[in-house]
Lab assay of single mutants.
Amino acid sequence: DVEEQIRRLEEVLKKNQPVTWNGTTYTDPNEIKKVIEELRK
């Protein structure tokens, strides 16, 4: 469920934690926001 994935990513973003997505770890909040934007398409 895309909405659920977006919610999880936004939670991690608020906590300033790194996100691992498709084998890539993102630590930059701007990169995480880009992943969220991609999911919304």
Rank of each mutant, 00 (worst) to 15 (best):
Y26K: 00
K14A: 14
P29Q: 08
T20A: 08
L13V: 09
T24H: 14
Q5R: 04
P18K: 13
E11Q: 07
T24I: 15
Q17H: 06
I32D: 00
T24W: 04
K14I: 11
V12W: 09
K34I: 07
V19H: 04
V2G: 03
P18M: 07
V12A: 15
D28Y: 02
K33N: 05
K33W: 11
I6N: 02
T20K: 13
Q17E: 14
K14L: 12
D28K: 02
K14W: 07
V19Y: 08
I6K: 01
E38Q: 12
V2T: 06
W21G: 11
I6V: 06
N22A: 06
N22E: 15
Y26A: 01
E31Q: 08
V2D: 03
Q5M: 13
R8E: 11
T27Q: 07
P29F: 08
T20E: 15
V35E: 01
D1G: 12
T25D: 06
L39Y: 03
K34Q: 12
L39S: 01
E10F: 05
L39A: 02
V35L: 15
L39Q: 01
E3M: 13
T24Q: 12
K33Q: 10
L9V: 02
L9I: 10
N16H: 12
L13A: 08
N22Q: 13
D28V: 02
I36N: 00
V19N: 03
E3N: 12
Q5N: 10
V12N: 14
T25I: 12
G23F: 02
L39M: 13
P29Y: 07
P18N: 12
Q5S: 08
K34P: 02
E11R: 04
T27S: 11
E4R: 09
G23P: 03
T20D: 15
I36F: 04
D1T: 15
R8V: 14
I32W: 02
K15S: 14
R8H: 13
Q5I: 15
Q17Y: 15
Y26P: 01
N22D: 13
Y26V: 05
K15R: 12
P18S: 13
K41Q: 13
E31R: 02
E4C: 14
E4D: 13
R40S: 04
N22I: 02
R7N: 07
G23D: 14
L9S: 00
P29G: 06
E31D: 14
T24D: 05
G23L: 01
K15G: 07
I36E: 00
D28W: 01
L13G: 02
N30E: 14
V12D: 12
K15F: 10
N22R: 04
P18R: 04
K34G: 09
T20G: 04
I32P: 00
K15L: 14
N22W: 13
E11W: 02
R40C: 03
V19A: 08
K34R: 10
K15Y: 11
E37I: 08
Q5G: 04
I6Y: 02
E10I: 09
T24S: 08
N22P: 12
T24A: 09
I6F: 02
D28P: 00
K41H: 10
N16A: 07
R7W: 04
E11I: 05
D1W: 15
E11N: 05
R7K: 12
D28M: 02
L13M: 12
K14Q: 12
K41F: 06
I32Q: 00
T27A: 06
R8T: 11
R40N: 03
Q5L: 14
E37A: 12
K33Y: 10
I32K: 00
R8W: 15
E31V: 07
E38K: 07
P29H: 07
I36T: 01
V19Q: 02
E37H: 08
L9R: 00
E10H: 05
T20C: 15
E11C: 09
N30Y: 10
E37V: 05
T20I: 15
I32A: 03
L9D: 00
L13T: 03
W21R: 11
E31N: 03
V35I: 15
E3T: 10
N30R: 09
R40G: 03
K33R: 13
E4H: 10
L9T: 01
K41E: 08
N16W: 11
V19C: 13
Q17N: 08
T27L: 06
E3K: 09
Q5D: 11
N16E: 06
E37Y: 03
T25Y: 14
P18F: 06
E38L: 13
T24G: 03
N30V: 13
E38P: 00
N22Y: 10
K33L: 13
N30G: 11
Y26T: 02
T27P: 02
G23T: 01
K14C: 11
V12L: 15
K41W: 05
I6G: 01
K34V: 05
D1Q: 08
K41V: 07
N16L: 06
L13R: 03
K41L: 12
K15Q: 10
Y26W: 04
T24R: 07
E4L: 09
I6H: 01
R8P: 02
Y26N: 00
Q17S: 09
E31Y: 03
E4W: 07
Y26I: 13
R8N: 08
I6S: 01
R7F: 04
V35Q: 03
E38G: 08
V12S: 15
V12E: 12
E37L: 09
E10M: 11
P29W: 07
E37Q: 10
E11K: 05
L39V: 03
N22H: 09
D28T: 06
I6L: 07
L9C: 04
V19I: 14
K15D: 10
V19M: 07
D1Y: 11
E37M: 08
D1P: 12
P18I: 10
L13Y: 05
W21H: 15
K41D: 06
N22M: 09
I36Q: 01
D28S: 05
V35N: 00
